[in-house]
Simulated scan of single mutants.
Amino acid sequence: MTGTTTTLDRFDGHIAGLGTAAGLRVVVGRWRRSPLGAFTDVMAERPDGHRLLLAPGPAVAEFVAATYTFDEVRVVPVAATVDGPRWTVRAGPLAATFRTGGRPPLGLLLAAVPTPLATSIPWVSAIDVVARRVLPGVRTRGSATGDRDEFYCARDMHRIVAASVAWDGVDQGALTPVDPPVRFGFGSTPAGPSVVRVTTLIRR
C-alpha cells in the first residue's frame, strides 16, 4: 500500500494587477520568500488574448507554468524595484512604472485581520464565497493545473493611481481596470488596479 505525500508551498509577497487603454493586462508577482527564493515574475495577457509568462529563470518558469496556463513562456531578466509608493518593473518586452495610493475600504478590512487567521486555509476557503459575490472574477481558492490546490491569502491592498506601461517599446496608454479578467488560472486580480499584500499557498 503506497501513501500519498502532500506538499504545501508558501509564497509571501505582493501581486500588482493593472490594465491599459491598449488592452494589455499585466500581473506582477514580487515574492520576498518562497521555496524558489526571492524572485519577481510577470504574467501578461495581450489584447488578442495571448497569455505570456515572463520568468527570471528555468526553475521559476517550470513551477509557475505547471500551476497556471499560458500560451507562451519566456525566460528573461525580470526585475522590480520599489521606492516608497513607486514601482519600476522590467521584464523582457515590458517596461512599467506605477505609483500606489491609499487603501480602499477592502484594504482596510484585510489589514485588520490577524496574520495567523488571514493565512489559514479554513478562513480563506470561507471568504471565497464572499469574494465571488463582491469582486467579479476574483477567487481566494481553487484548483490549479498539475493536480494542485491554490489559496490566496490577501492581507492588505493599495490602489494603483498612476502608471506608464510600454510593451516592445510601444506605449500602452492610460491606466485602466483589469477588464476583461485575466485567464491564467481559476481567478483574476481585482478589476481595480491595485497592489495586494498576499500569502499564496499551493497544495500539491
Score class of each variant (00 low, 15 high):
G49V: 06
R51W: 11
R51M: 12
L52W: 06
L52M: 11
L53F: 03
L53S: 01
L53H: 02
L53G: 00
L54R: 05
L54W: 03
L54Y: 00
A55H: 08
A55Y: 04
P56T: 12
G57Q: 06
P58F: 10
P58C: 13
P58E: 08
A59M: 04
A59F: 08
V60W: 02
F63S: 10
V64L: 09
V64E: 02
V64T: 10
A65V: 02
A66R: 12
T67G: 03
T67H: 03
T67I: 05
Y68V: 01
Y68D: 05
Y68T: 02
T69D: 12
T69Y: 09
F70P: 03
F70Y: 13
D71G: 14
E72G: 12
R74M: 14
V75G: 03
V75K: 10
V75D: 00
V76S: 00
P77D: 08
P77M: 11
P77E: 11
V78D: 01
A80K: 02
T81K: 10
T81E: 13
T81C: 11
T81Q: 14
V82C: 01
D83Y: 08
P85I: 05
P85N: 09
P85T: 08
P85L: 08
R86D: 13
R86G: 09
R86N: 11
W87R: 07
W87S: 08
T88F: 03
T88K: 04
V89S: 00
V89W: 03
V89T: 01
R90G: 10
R90Q: 08
R90E: 11
G92F: 08
G92A: 10
P93I: 01
P93T: 08
P93Q: 09
L94T: 04
L94H: 04
A96D: 03
F98M: 01
R99Y: 02
R103V: 01
L106R: 11
L106N: 04
L106A: 11
L108T: 06
L108W: 13
L109K: 00
L109G: 12
L110E: 00
V113A: 05
V113K: 05
V113C: 02
T115D: 14
P116Y: 06
P116K: 06
A118M: 04
T119W: 02
T119D: 08
S120I: 07
I121H: 06
P122G: 07
V124M: 12
V124D: 08
A126I: 01
A126W: 13
I127L: 15
I127F: 06
I127W: 01
I127P: 01
D128Y: 06
V129C: 09
V129R: 15
V130G: 10
A131G: 09
A131L: 11
A131C: 10
A131R: 05
R132W: 01
R132N: 07
R133Y: 08
V134P: 01
L135E: 04
P136I: 02
G137D: 03
V138E: 07
R139H: 15
R139Q: 12
R139L: 10
T140P: 09
R141C: 12
R141W: 07
G142S: 11
A144H: 09
T145A: 15
D147V: 09
D147A: 15
D147L: 14
R148D: 02
D149C: 13
Y152H: 14
Y152N: 12
Y152E: 08
C153M: 10
C153A: 15
R155M: 15
